[in-house]
């Protein structure tokens, strides 16, 4: 049996009071000594920042498993509010909206078993999410990675983070080439 899928529709401009949640960007347990920061700006085809993009991140568990752990958006059954993550479990899932400058910040642990964080991008004006990857440059063997090694150098660079300081990595996303910068490589999974 093969059912026809329900079509995607844009996330629109008003998801902001519904989808982001406290600690959505804090995937690493608080105070974890190996915590890394990945941050950057989402740009459109005019080079302008996109202030209403929603990014989601997914990565394997600290043991490299792909099963995931619940508790990313832990709720408080007493008040109906948010408790935040429990500070111990690593759920592998992060969600962060860009701010008025198009900027996002994610705090997580380095991926285990692979060199990349999986990223999806939603935005007003975007009919269906885009998938991309943020490869941490220092733990990526470009020649050994089938995806990266298949890309021309300019395009390849769009998937690699830039190390700004120890444990601080920059990863900008360009939804469309703007005449100066390469468009980020977006992925599909057949």
């Amino acid at each position: 049996m093969s059912l026809s899928p329900t079509p995607s529709q844009t996330v629109g401009p008003f998801y902001g009071y519904a989808l982001p949640f406290p600690d959505g960007e804090n995937v690493a347990p608080a105070g974890h000594p190996e915590m890394i920061t990945v941050h950057g700006v989402v740009h459109d085809g005019a080079g302008a920042p996109v202030p209403d993009a929603l990014l989601e991140f997914w990565q394997p568990g600290v043991d490299g498993s792909r099963r995931g752990v619940a508790g990313s958006l832990r709720r408080d059954p007493v008040t109906g509010g948010f408790l935040g993550r429990n500070g111990l479990d690593f759920t592998g899932f992060g969600r962060v909206a860009t701010d008025a400058d198009g900027h996002y910040t994610l705090r997580t642990l380095p991926p285990v078993g692979v060199g990349y964080l999986s990223v999806t991008v939603f935005a007003r004006g975007l009919m269906r999410q885009l998938h991309t990857r943020a490869y941490l440059r220092e733990q990526t063997d470009i020649a050994a990675d089938p995806l990266l090694s298949s890309l021309a150098p300019g395009r390849q660079a769009t998937l690699l983070t830039t190390r700004e300081q120890d444990k601080i990595h920059r990863f900008d996303i360009r939804l469309q080439e703007d005449g100066v910068h390469e468009e980020t490589v977006f992925l599909e999974f057949p």
Binding site: T10, D44, G45, A46, A48, V50, W58, Q59, P60, R66, R67, G68, V69, A70, S72, T91, G92, F93, P111, V114, Y116, S118, A123, R124, G125, L126, M127, L130, H131, P146, L147, S150, L151, R155, L175, Q176, E177, E183, T184, V185, F186, L187, E188, F189, P190
Partner: peptide, 26 residues
């Protein structure tokens, strides 16, 4: 709003059966 917010390059196909994207958060 879609005019400046869609990629112009074709999507790059990832056939890797070990891709992390084939699992997901719970």
């Amino acid at each position: 709003s879609s005019v400046l917010r869609h990629p112009k390059q074709p999507l790059v196909s990832v056939g890797d059966p070990e891709a992390v994207e084939l699992s997901g958060p719970v």
